[in-house]
């Protein structure tokens, strides 16, 4: 326990000393909410979106921050640790390497929580975006979305062996997946078939889960099933395939 606490504290420090990591996962999403909301048209009701632009984009930005965390930071750190022999070095100590993985996940989960609070807080204070009224439904959407994405991140860390490969794979996944989440073209404006495909992608389903939670109090069963399926498949694959060296 003492070792896990120390490891977690150290991983937090290292994260805060890594400007790229906290810029993309903490500062950038908040900045994006500020920028989007400062465009006057985003604060007017859009009949096409069925909401104001800023209301539409707030959950998208949130999911984007989780994706940045899980597709870049998680595999980046773990693959780097493996590549440098840090995991191997830890396996010669009584503590073993698994706890550093737990410590990383704690740091990343905390980052996701802080980012969520900051993004929602900023959107609410500056632009009057309504905070989630159904806390239970919102928490469910949050946990499934972050859990699924972290499982994908762990899977990437299991199958990729160099940090270079991890970065390229992160980008190769992030941009198309963010398309389905509706970052570039709002989902409401996509052709129906594309939007349906989007609903079963990890990021599309995550955004849907937040929207469902806001609209009807809880993510729909289909969305929950899609996210849970991704989490289980990638989580199990990661557990099977992860190598310490």
């Amino acid at each position: 326990m003492r070792a896990l606490k120390r490891l977690t504290a150290v991983e937090f420090k290292l994260f805060l000393r890594d400007p790229a990591a906290f810029f993309w996962t903490l500062i950038f999403p908040v900045a994006l909410v500020v920028i989007i909301g400062s465009i006057p048209s985003s604060r007017k009701y859009s009949p096409e979106l069925g909401a104001r632009g800023i209301d539409y984009y707030t959950p998208v930005v949130l999911v984007m921050s989780f994706a940045l965390l899980a597709l870049f930071i998680t595999p980046g750190y773990l693959v780097g640790y493996r590549e440098k022999g840090i995991l191997r070095r830890l396996s010669t100590t009584p503590v073993g390497p698994a706890r550093v993985l737990i410590a990383q996940l704690v740091v990343q989960m905390t980052t996701a929580i802080v980012t969520t609070v900051l993004v929602l807080g900023t959107a609410g204070l500056l632009w009057g975006v309504k905070l989630p009224s159904n806390v239970g439904g919102f928490l469910l959407a949050f946990l499934l979305s972050v859990g699924t994405l972290l499982a994908i991140g762990l899977f990437l860390a299991s199958v990729l062996s160099t940090t270079k490969a991890a970065t390229s794979m992160g980008s190769a996944l992030f941009f198309p997946l963010m398309f389905f989440a509706g970052l570039y073209v709002p989902r409401e404006l996509m052709p129906a078939a594309v939007a349906t495909i989007g609903d079963v992608t990890p990021l599309g389903a995550s955004v849907l889960a937040f929207n469902d939670a806001a609209a009807s109090g809880s993510p729909s069963l289909t969305t929950l099933a899609v996210l849970a399926a991704y989490a289980v498949v990638f989580g199990v694959a990661a557990a099977r395939l992860f190598r310490w060296e």
Partner: peptide, 19 residues
């Protein structure tokens, strides 16, 4: 074997001692 780039000497020592 290496350590994380940004880990400081004293931190590494204290961390490994805690194991």
């Amino acid at each position: 074997s290496e350590m994380p780039d940004k880990l400081r000497v004293a931190e590494a020592m204290e961390l490994y001692a805690s194991f």
